[in-house]
Amino acid sequence: MCGGDSRQSVAGAGQGPDASESAPPRRILHVDMDAFFASVEQRDRPELRGRPVAVGHGRSRGVVAAASYEAREFGVRSAMPSVTALRKCPELIFVPPRFDVYRGISAEIHAIFADYTELVEPLSLDEAYLDVSLACAGGRPASAIAEEIRARIHATTGLTASAGVSYNKFLAKLASDQNKPDGLTVIPPRRAGAFVAGLPVGRFHGVGPVTEAKMHRLGIRSGADLRARSLAFLQAHFGSSAAHYHAISRGIDPRPVRPDRPRKSIGAETTLSQDLSALEAAAEVLERLAAKLSGPCAEKGLAGRTVTLKVRFTDFVQITRRRTLSRPLTETHEMLEVARQLLAGLHPFPRPVRLLGITLSGLVPRTEGAAARQLDLFDEAGPGGG
């Protein structure tokens, strides 16, 4: 519908566990704009249409914030270093981000959501969950609401959105990604089982590359493989995450849609492909992590007063170091400098490092950080930092 060439599908075949004769299933939508930042730039600059575009800075140390679908065909992805993106696609066009423009369009989109339900949980500028159960109580299909929302977004902004419809957040998010761009996928309870069973585990929320590789080593490659493992087996191999994996493999996700949930922190971490002992090599990893945080901070208009460094060693001992500042940090290089200082305080490392992470907390509107002047630091030892 959106743009005249949308795709709609009904996924799976089987019985969903959340279905109940006494309590009708919830109607949850996940609406996700298609290549949002890049699509805005292509909309506003006709010469970019049909060409590979990356939103970000093309400097040697830059990072891709978003990539158009033309760029994605070459393997360009968000959070990828600019030099890697250019190596994959030499014709890639870098466009500096315009977060004020993106926030304005996002406000228009969320105003449309508000016409259908008060239960809207924004995940970022370009995606949100909507609980439309009440709007469907009179018999109106959730899929019809999703199509209408997508059509209104296109008419208002000139941009396309994809949507997923199901009875919980986990499945709705999976569904919205199924027919991108400009698609709609519905996963009703009776068909959820087969849909989940046929997915690779890497598609599941909470299963990152490291966990995916571990699951593969255990012979778990699909939702069906994951569902076949007992909770005890999963607890033995995945600890506290086991209950989550056990539930989602069965299409179970009781989380409610929480409107206007406040963001307490923004973080990024990575398990290293090679253990590191050198300070310079570990500092380079922090640079990439800080760059990954800059996009979410800018698009949400947030700054933070506290930087927390997370370090896990090869023996799985984990420590944190934290520094709180008198004014909120608004720039990536400021956040990175604090993280580097915290890391330097741990060197020489007692053992090689296998995981590094940075978290920004004490979040406030970005305008507060821009207005502040003083930078008085005081150190705090984080939990386990002894």
Rank of each mutant, 00 (worst) to 15 (best):
S240E: 15
L329I: 06
Q274V: 14
T320Y: 08
I248C: 06
V257G: 08
D260I: 11
R255E: 12
R255I: 08
P296Y: 05
S240R: 15
I319L: 14
V317K: 03
V285T: 10
G267V: 09
V311C: 06
L276I: 12
T330Q: 04
F313T: 07
G301V: 06
S265D: 09
L293H: 04
P256T: 07
E280P: 00
T330P: 02
S326Q: 11
D260P: 00
E284T: 10
A228I: 05
F238E: 04
A242R: 03
L272W: 05
V257Q: 06
F233L: 05
P296T: 08
E299N: 07
G251H: 05
A268G: 10
L302V: 01
D275F: 08
L286N: 03
A291M: 03
K292R: 13
I266K: 06
Y245H: 03
H246W: 15
L325K: 02
A236K: 15
T306F: 03
D315V: 10
D275P: 02
S294Q: 12
Y245K: 02
S249M: 10
E331Y: 10
S265M: 09
S277R: 08
S265L: 05
I266W: 10
E284H: 11
K300D: 14
T314E: 13
E269G: 13
S241R: 14
E299P: 03
P262C: 03
A228R: 14
G295S: 13
R323E: 12
R288C: 07
P256W: 10
G251S: 08
L329M: 11
K300C: 11
